[in-house]
Write a protein that binds this DNA or RNA. Structure first.
Length: 971
RNA sequence: GCCCGGGUGGCGGAAUUGGUAGACGCGCUGGACUCAAAAUCCAGUGGUAGUAAUACCGUAUCGGUUCGAUUCCGAUCCCGGGCACCA
């Protein structure tokens, strides 16, 4: 028996009250009668010592380093890398990391070379906000936070290959973010080839044929011949090219957040306020950088068919892209008083329902529509101007909050190209400038909004739906038979759509058109803590820096205040402005759009990632992260991958083969109820029964660690905050104070965070890992509940007992195992392997528990059983497995062992118990030797007393025997 | 409003292809060990009736298909997530 003597600082007292030693650790400690001496029995399951030792050894032995030159098949397991916030990790964060870690270890045991890296998405707003408040440089706080994150992660025992760590704010990393940006800048999307190509090729096309075959994505009305191109000056040419580039600068309406002092991408704005901080967001016209992600809409959509994402994830992306099919229709315009004017252009509308063309009763333009000024009749000018003022006065938020019907007649009329009917043209804010053509045809009988609009302004409604239209509300059906529609009369609407489109194209009054909701992504931020753009402005022309000038390093600044006229802090620095460098920086998603590629070849100084490396590792086989990135990061990184693929830098055009979204672990908050304006706290039970005083109450969050279950430690509560020193309580009749509970997001301010550090301290990393998995399916969101962890902890202690006796003797023998034991082992291997493969980690943990319960009952200590069992457990509980594995005499890590194969022969039973049902209702059970002929079984079933009783003399119609499962006698 | 998920004991959840519903864990109850506590171990634990064997009911509700439905189909209710004037 090995005993370590330690001098313990708290003397005779075990110190449980004083230092609050975790119960699990106290288990391993027995007090000696000698003063101040404690004995630690190493043979108890001393997870602290085991975990510390192996974490150190693993690091020294570099067992997690993977090679790019392996002959093994590759497997790439990736976590969404974290933003290193100052708050550190709470128990919710590691959920996905544990799942991926188990899977990565499992794949390694199965013989794959597994890339499982980790890094940090280190640029972003919070670090900069913190810098503004405290003056601490973001680089400093970021480095500090990263160190803390790494420490926390390492304690959980992840198999990350830290030699491949990336940090998006490291110049050696963002040098390549800048480089990729320049590749996008130097590219355009060739629509006929459906892929990105170099700008040089586009210039060549312009020189030979103009842009007649290459519609300009930035300005569809732009047409020029090769001859015209040659006459254009440099500035004009660059302006045109800019309208084609995949990364481009342009003036546009952006989401401006005054509080944050920057623009935001559409997915960073939720209900008119910023995602981070919840500040109001307004539309503003600004010169910005954009990514022309809209050009990839079709490929982003079709690519979803080739990847394994959850249905909801695919739906979210599909909805965000928002593809719709319809037609563009041209209407001639007439403006009273401007009859003869020839410069009134046609009005172009987009509709998904060209079949309703005879039901058009009015047109509506977005207030921002470019034609509004030209077509407003003189008599209406005042009203239109007043309406535009009204629209401008309303913030985005107000518009979203109260969708009041408003609008103004412009006095102009549009001519229906099919029947020459004159239709009034209105403007209204319910029509969005940014979608379609910014103008719609109003069909009140078939569209709810159009109907409300027509009603509100007393526009007569034409019925083209026959009796399908009641006159009271619109009917958006697609299956009605058209009436009042001239040549379409009698056609079903769905068929009429095609008929109308063909007619429009024949007459030249319109064309088929596909539309997308998705807009180009705003790519610049007026902030400091991001990648600088490698762009120099000269005379309004953007010039990219050369490869040799990268990285363009972020300069050191003293202050983080915004620059003049909405520019970023970089505009305050003369060394920056003197060089005419772009003063905005890239958004948070820039660095995360390609980091999975950098992990493959992290130290390459010649390229962002060598082609050999990306060809070897290829797609991420298994990607895990939260749903919140559904339309941001995932779409952007898919686009970057496609562009890099098009340009020949990588060999695959979808980054992630399989995506799993882990659920959130919510905090379980505890609430106390204080009578308003007093120090009197009323217990939840008393409050609910109405026994408390009936003044209004404040509901306050209380630190969860002060509450055992729901009962509050009142003494600790008084000491918690000075405010509560004088707290008085109205308790339940048994003297306890019961708290209210609520499941909500873990956050410091709600005092409901639980740190993985505390759990690992108390129970160890292996228990923590298995418990998080045991809670339920990874995809599921669930509240954290520390109580249940005891069950998993008991399991590991029980497991330990199979190897060590209570007094520390090594129990493992070579004696050989009984058949029953082998059966248990092979069943466990099969189940654990299958469950792990299908990511059902919770049921795999259950299986281990069953196995250990059964083997313990059989008093099993055989090496032949325990060895393979350790290997199957290794992905879940790596420390204890490694410890016992090496104790068994193995020199190298358990991870280099092949995953055990199960033998089918052990899974077969000699006797099979069949439940016997009569008409589906289970009556009894009959046992047959495995493989009994069905005909023989039938005989025996009919002779069975209970079955005979149930048949009551009747002949069964048929007997259904489901092999190995059940027997049903149908009467 | 629209689009996805989902609804199973006191709780988290299991049931992989339509085949014994409630695995495993927590909690609870009783017991063993102990001067005592902790830890550990054993037994019980969906509901109703019964000493018991057992019987009946039971996977949100109603209906359908089937020898047999938590599983498939239809309707309704509720919960969660996403989108939301997208023409």
């Amino acid at each position: 028996m090995q005993i370590q003597n330690l001098t313990f600082f708290c003397g005779k007292d075990l110190g449980i009250g004083q230092v609050n030693y975790p119960p699990a650790f106290v288990d391993c400690i027995r007090a000696d009668n000698d003063l101040g001496k404690l004995r630690i029995h190493q043979m108890e399951y001393n997870f602290r010592e085991i975990e510390d030792r192996w974490q150190r050894r693993w690091k020294e032995e570099r067992i997690y380093q993977v090679s790019n030159n392996s002959s093994k098949p590759k497997y790439y397991v990736l976590d969404m890398f974290p933003y290193p916030s100052g708050a550190g990790l709470h128990v919710g964060h590691p959920l996905g990391y544990i799942a991926s870690d188990i899977y990565a270890r499992f794949k390694r045991l199965q013989g794959f070379e597994v890339l499982h890296p980790m890094g940090f998405d280190a640029f972003g707003l919070p670090a900069e906000q913190y810098a503004i408040e405290t003056g601490q440089h973001p680089a400093l706080t970021t480095a500090k936070n990263i160190a803390n994150f790494k420490r926390q992660l390492d304690r959980i025992g992840f198999c990350f290959d830290w030699s491949r760590e990336v940090n998006t704010s490291d110049p050696q990393y963002y040098r390549w973010t800048q480089w990729i940006f320049l590749q996008l800048y130097d590219s355009w999307f060739n629509r006929s080839h459906q892929r990105a190509e170099r700008i040089a090729g586009l210039i060549h096309i312009f020189e030979t044929e103009g842009n007649l075959n290459q519609e300009c994505p930035g300005d569809s009305s732009l047409h020029f011949s090769s001859g015209e191109w040659k006459t254009f000056g440099e500035k004009r040419r660059q302006g045109i090219l800019m309208d084609y580039r995949l990364a481009y600068s342009g003036v546009g309406e952006v989401n401006w957040c005054e509080e944050l002092g920057t623009v935001l991408a559409n997915d960073e704005v939720i209900n008119g306020v910023s995602e981070r901080g919840g500040y109001p967001v307004v539309k503003k016209k600004l010169r910005q950088w954009y990514l022309r992600i809209t050009e990839y809409a079709e490929r982003l959509l079709s690519g979803l068919d080739t990847v394994n994402f959850s249905q909801s994830m695919k739906d979210m992306q599909t909805n965000w892209i928002g593809k719709s099919r319809g037609a563009e229709i041209l209407f001639d315009l007439r403006v009273p008083g401007k009859e003869e004017s020839k410069d009134i252009p046609e009005l172009k509308v987009y509709t998904t329902r060209p079949d309703t063309i005879y039901g058009v009763d009015f047109m509506v333009l977005a207030p921002e529509h470019e034609l509004v000024g030209q077509i407003t009749a003189e008599s209406k000018e005042k009203e239109v101007a007043a309406y535009l003022d009204y629209v401008n006065s309303r913030s985005e938020r107000e518009r979203l909050a109260e969708k009041a019907i408003s609008g103004c007649d412009t006095g102009a009329v549009a001519i229906n190209p099919f029947n020459s009917r004159e239709i009034p043209v209105w403007i209204s804010e319910y029509v969005l400038a940014g979608y379609g053509t910014g103008a719609i045809m109003g069909v009140p009988c078939g569209d709810e909004r159009d109907h409300r609009f027509a009603r509100h302004f007393h526009i007569p409604v034409t019925n083209i739906l026959g009796d399908q239209y009641t006159g009271l509300e619109a009917n958006p059906t697609k299956t009605a038979v058209l009436s009042n529609s001239d040549f379409l009369d009698g056609l079903v609407m769905t068929d009429a759509i095609e008929t109308v489109i063909q007619r429009l194209e024949l007459d030249g009054t319109g064309r088929r058109r596909v539309n997308y909701k998705m807009r180009d992504a705003a790519f610049s931020r007026q902030r400091y803590w991001g990648e600088p753009f490698p762009i120099v402005w000269e005379d309004g022309i953007a010039f990219p820096l050369k490869d040799g000038e990268l990285p363009l390093e972020l300069p050191h600044v003293e202050h983080y205040q915004p620059g003049p006229e909405g520019e970023g802090p970089l505009a305050n620095i003369s060394e920056w402005t003197d060089r005419n460098l772009e003063t905005s920086t890239m958004p948070g998603y820039a660095g995360s759009s390609w980091y999975f590629l950098r992990y493959m070849d992290p130290h390459n100084e010649q390229a962002f990632c060598s082609r050999e490396a990306s060809d070897y590792w290829g797609q991420v086989d298994f990607y895990i992260g939260g749903t919140e990135h559904a339309v941001g990061h995932l779409l952007y990184s898919r686009m970057w991958t496609k562009a890099l693929f098009d340009l020949g830098y990588i060999g695959h055009d979808e980054p992630y083969k399989r995506l799993v979204n882990q659920g959130m672990i919510q905090g379980s908050s505890r609430l106390v109820y204080r009578q308003k304006g007093t120090g009197l706290f009323v217990s939840a039970g008393k409050l609910a029964s109405g026994a408390g005083p009936d003044l209004p109450y404040d509901t306050l969050h209380v630190e969860v660690s002060l509450v055992d279950g729901v009962s509050l430690d009142m003494e600790a509560f008084r000491h918690w905050k000075p405010d509560y020193q004088e707290a008085r309580f109205i308790t339940e009749d048994n003297g306890t104070y019961i708290c209210g509970t609520e499941s909500e997001k873990m956050s410091k301010s709600k005092y409901n965070t639980v740190s993985p550090d505390d759990i690992v301290d108390k129970y160890g990393a292996d228990t923590f890992r298995m418990y998080e998995m045991f809670l339920g399916p990874v995809e599921l969101s669930k509240p954290w509940d520390t109580k249940g962890i005891e069950g998993v902890y008991r399991f590991l202690k029980k497991f330990w007992r199979m190897f060590y006796s209570e007094d520390g003797k090594w129990l493992v023998t070579d004696a050989g195992a009984a058949l029953e034991e082998w059966k248990i082992l092979h069943r466990t291997i099969k189940k654990a392997a299958e469950d792990t493969e299908r990511l059902s980690f919770n049921t795999a943990v259950s299986q281990f528990m069953i196995c250990v319960n059964e083997l313990t009952a059989l008093n099993c200590h055989d090496k032949g059983i325990l060895s393979p069992l350790l290997v199957t457990l290794a992905p879940y509980a790596p420390h204890i497995s490694e410890e016992l594995w090496r104790k068994m005499g193995h020199e190298s890590t358990i991870l280099d062992t092949p995953y055990p194969a199960y033998q089918e022969s052990y899974l077969k039973e000699d006797q099979v118990n069949y439940p016997v049902a009569v008409n589906g209702r289970t009556r009894t059970e009959i046992s047959f030797p495995a493989g009994t002929d069905h005909a023989n079984m039938e005989q025996e079933i009919l002779q069975n007393g209970i079955v005979r009783k149930w048949l009551a003399g009747k002949q069964p119609k048929k007997i259904i025997i489901v092999e190995g499962r059940m027997i049903n006698v149908v009467v």
